[in-house]
C-alpha cells in the first residue's frame, strides 16, 4: 500500500467502514510509516475535537430577550396547556 492509497481510504478507515482485509492493510502500513501514522493520529483528532464541541451553547442574552419577545404573540395563539 502506498501513502496515497492510505489517504484515499482514510475516511472509511476512521469511520470503521473498511472490510477487515483493507483495515489490516491500512494498519500494517501505518505501523511502518511514521508520516502516515502521524496523519492518522491528527485526522482522528480533528473528528474527536469536533464531536467534543458544545452542541448547545446558550443564546446570546440580548438575542434571547429579542427572540422571546418576538414569539410572544405566537405563544398567545397557542397556549401551552
Amino acid at each position: 500500500m502506498t501513502c496515497q492509497e492510505l489517504l484515499d481510504l482514510l475516511h472509511d478507515y476512521v469511520g470503521n467502514e473498511l472490510v477487515i482485509e483493507s483495515r489490516t492493510t491500512v494498519e500494517v502500513h501505518i505501523s511502518g510509516c511514521l508520516q502516515c501514522g502521524t496523519l492518522v493520529h491528527a485526522y482522528t483528532h480533528t473528528v474527536r475535537v469536533a464531536r467534543a464541541l458544545p452542541k448547545c451553547n446558550p443564546l446570546p442574552a440580548a438575542f434571547e430577550a429579542r427572540l422571546r419577545a418576538m414569539i410572544e404573540p405566537e405563544l398567545k395563539d397557542k397556549p401551552a396547556e
Binding site: C3, Q4, L7, D8, Q35, T38, L39, H41, A42
Partner: peptide, 10 residues
C-alpha cells in the same frame, strides 16, 4: 486530498 504535508503528533 493529497499529498499531505508531514506533521507532528498532536
Amino acid at each position: 486530498g493529497g499529498p499531505v504535508t508531514p506533521g507532528k503528533r498532536w
